[in-house]
Structure formats: structure tokens, C-alpha cells
Amino acid sequence: MSNKQAISLKLIVSQSAGNLVSDMDGEKVMLNIDKGKYYNLGQLGGVIWELVEQPMAVQELVSTLCSLYQVEQSECENQVIEFLEKLMQEGLIQVKNFSS
């Protein structure tokens, strides 16, 4: 499946390989040598990154975050999906249908 689709709650997301990942002052930072790009996911982005180390449905990811943080479900959904779409555009995550 291509990475050109929009993120929805039913999709499965997981980390893409090939990045050097480190923690810096509580924030998750990554370096992709092939692309010559440096990424800072911040503190909460780092939590999301670790949660998708194994393939996880976006719905499950949102539910997990809502159980850990003081945030409304709708706000969490919108912001997490927006963040995941940026990760997808940079090729940092893989996106699959539940059935694939």
C-alpha cells in the first residue's frame, strides 16, 4: 500500500526502519542519513513513536494516549492523526489496512 492515503482510525501504523533514534533532554530525535534530515518529535511525539514500535491501530493508539493524558478524545484524535500524517509524509511510519 502506498503512503499517499489519509490517516484514519482504522489503519495500522508502525515505525519505518532506517533511522538513528536517540533521546535528548526527554525529546525523541532522529537522523535519517539517506535523506540528510534531522527530526525532533518532541516529548509527546516520542511517546507516540515508542507506542508504534509494533504495528498498532490508530484507534488503539488514541485510546492509549487518552488513558495516559488529560485530553478530550476528539482533540487527541485530531492532533494525533495530523502528527501521524506528517510522519507518513516523511516516510517515518508505515501505514496499512487492518486486513493487509
Binding site: L31, Y38, N40, G42, Y69, Q70, F83, L87
Partner: peptide, 18 residues
């Protein structure tokens, strides 16, 4: 007790690098 939420953001920088 739940932690405080902050909007997740992705910062992207082009770097020059052997």
C-alpha cells in the same frame, strides 16, 4: 493521575553531513 497533554509536533531540519 493523568499527565498534561501537549500537541505532538514534528520538527524537520535538513542537515549537511563522512
Amino acid at each position: 493521575m493523568k499527565k498534561e497533554w501537549s500537541k505532538p509536533e514534528l520538527e524537520v531540519l535538513d542537515v549537511k553531513m563522512m
